[in-house]
Amino acid sequence: MNVDEVKSILLQHLSLDEVYVTLYEDNYQIVAIGHVFYDMNELERHKIIYAPLMKYILNNEIHAISIQAFNPEEWNEKRRLCSISSSC
């Protein structure tokens, strides 16, 4: 499974504003931004991302996932901080 397929699955099943997917060895790194993440803790956000990918995880098409999920305000703040810091 390639990064475009993972991104497409997430966009088809979730109301997200933006999704970035990269692959490093066998670990998919997902950054998801959406209004759906307001008032959710990190575990709830991860469950939202895992749900449409679960069948691919169970049949070993996806081996490992790293998730960062933000609501739009958090994402804008992260981008602002990254623009003034080299730690991102």
Rank of each mutant, 00 (worst) to 15 (best):
M1Y: 00
M1Q: 03
N2D: 12
V3Y: 02
D4L: 08
D4V: 01
E5V: 08
V6C: 10
V6R: 01
L11K: 14
Q12V: 02
H13C: 12
L14A: 05
L14D: 13
L16E: 03
D17L: 13
E18V: 13
E18L: 15
E18P: 03
E18T: 13
Y20W: 09
T22W: 07
L23A: 04
Y24P: 00
E25T: 09
E25S: 13
Y28F: 15
Y28W: 02
Q29M: 12
V31F: 00
A32E: 11
A32S: 14
I33F: 01
I33L: 03
I33S: 04
G34A: 02
G34V: 05
H35A: 15
V36A: 09
F37K: 06
F37V: 07
Y38M: 02
D39F: 10
D39W: 07
D39L: 06
M40D: 07
N41S: 02
E42C: 01
L43D: 05
L43I: 13
L43N: 06
E44F: 02
E44C: 04
R45W: 00
R45Y: 00
R45S: 15
H46T: 06
H46W: 10
K47P: 12
I48Y: 08
I49T: 09
I49C: 06
A51I: 04
K55R: 06
K55P: 15
K55F: 02
Y56Q: 09
I57M: 08
I57N: 05
L58G: 03
L58D: 05
N59L: 11
N60V: 01
E61A: 05
E61V: 01
I62P: 01
I62G: 01
A64E: 02
I65D: 07
I65W: 01
S66V: 08
I67E: 15
I67N: 13
I67P: 04
Q68S: 13
A69G: 08
A69L: 08
A69D: 06
F70C: 07
F70S: 08
F70Y: 15
F70N: 12
F70T: 10
F70K: 10
N71T: 10
N71F: 00
N71M: 12
P72E: 09
P72A: 08
E73H: 11
E74H: 03
E74S: 11
E74R: 14
N76Y: 12
N76E: 11
N76F: 12
E77L: 13
E77K: 14
K78I: 04
K78W: 11
R79V: 09
R79D: 07
R80V: 01
R80Y: 07
L81K: 03
S83G: 04
S83C: 02
I84C: 01
I84H: 03
S85C: 03
S86E: 10
S86N: 10
S86A: 05
S87V: 11
S87H: 01
S87T: 14
S87G: 06
C88F: 02
